[in-house]
Amino acid sequence: MPSAPFHPGAQGTPGGYAGQQAPGGSFAHGGAPVPGVPMEFTACRFCGSVPAVNTTFRGHRGLLVLMQFLSTEGPFCRDCGLGVFRHMTTRTLVQGWYGYASMIITPVTVVINLIRRGKVARLTPPQPHPYLPSRQPMDPGPRLAQRPMTWIGVGIPVALVILIIAIASSGS
């Protein structure tokens, strides 16, 4: 089925679609594409809502000898994207520090996720997809600073540094 652009608030278009053939066969705006309007829908991979943006949130799990790289690929609506960002980043902060290279990879992963968070945070509230089934978007949950596991994850490297300093100073 061909996709039609989603343009909430477009005036004079049935259901807010412009420049493509509407489901009933008629063309919105006389069939002429509207500048600045995307030519197809991007629906959230979890709930099917629109608008959605394609991005990937990463995670890192450091083990003493090995490490594991995690990722969850979009597209995501605003609510589902924020939920995935918060989940992956919190897990990375708690599980990412346990290895030599992981002490560098973990903060880099968190910064990358913070940058990518902006893409989903700027989206408008999710709306049901007009052509496909949609579900209720996920609850993004509390912000990172309001999650106890985030503070535990931030405290781990601080505790490690204090422990290293204590061991180094007691040996002299």
Rank of each mutant, 00 (worst) to 15 (best):
T124E: 15
Y100M: 13
P38I: 08
P75Y: 07
D139V: 02
R45K: 11
T92H: 11
N54P: 00
M39K: 13
G9R: 13
T92C: 12
P137V: 04
P38W: 00
P130N: 12
G24C: 12
G81Q: 03
I104P: 02
G36K: 05
V120Y: 08
I105N: 05
G59R: 01
L63P: 00
E73V: 04
R58S: 13
I162Q: 15
W151D: 12
V161Y: 03
V37E: 01
A159I: 02
Q136L: 13
V50F: 02
P33H: 08
S172V: 04
L163R: 11
I156P: 11
T89C: 08
V34P: 03
D79K: 00
L82R: 00
R86C: 04
I164C: 14
T106Y: 05
C44S: 10
T89D: 09
A18M: 05
S71M: 01
L163H: 09
H60C: 04
R61I: 10
S172M: 07
T90E: 15
V154S: 01
S169H: 09
R86Y: 03
L66V: 05
D79Q: 12
I167S: 13
F69M: 11
L160N: 15
G155D: 05
F85H: 07
G48Q: 10
I104H: 03
R143W: 03
T109C: 15
W151R: 03
G24A: 13
V84W: 02
P2W: 05
T106V: 05
A168G: 03
L70P: 01
P128Q: 05
G16F: 04
S170F: 12
P148Y: 03
F76Q: 09
R147S: 04
M39I: 01
I156R: 14
G31C: 02
S170H: 08
I105R: 05
H129F: 07
H60W: 14
D79F: 02
T109I: 08
G19S: 03
L114P: 00
L163Q: 08
H87Q: 14
P133A: 11
L63R: 15
Y17G: 06
C77M: 06
G30N: 10
P2M: 01
I104W: 11
V37G: 07
R117Q: 10
L114D: 14
F57K: 13
G96Y: 04
T72M: 05
L160A: 15
A121F: 02
T109G: 08
R61A: 09
G24Y: 02
L144Y: 09
L163C: 09
L160Q: 13
S170P: 06
V108R: 15
C47P: 01
L66Q: 14
G12F: 07
W97K: 10
G19A: 12
Q95W: 06
V161P: 11
M88S: 14
Y17M: 15
G118D: 14
M67L: 13
R91G: 12
Q95I: 00
V94R: 15
P8D: 07
G48M: 04
P130W: 08
A10C: 13
R135T: 05
P75N: 07
F41S: 12
Q21I: 11
W97T: 04
G19L: 09
S170C: 09
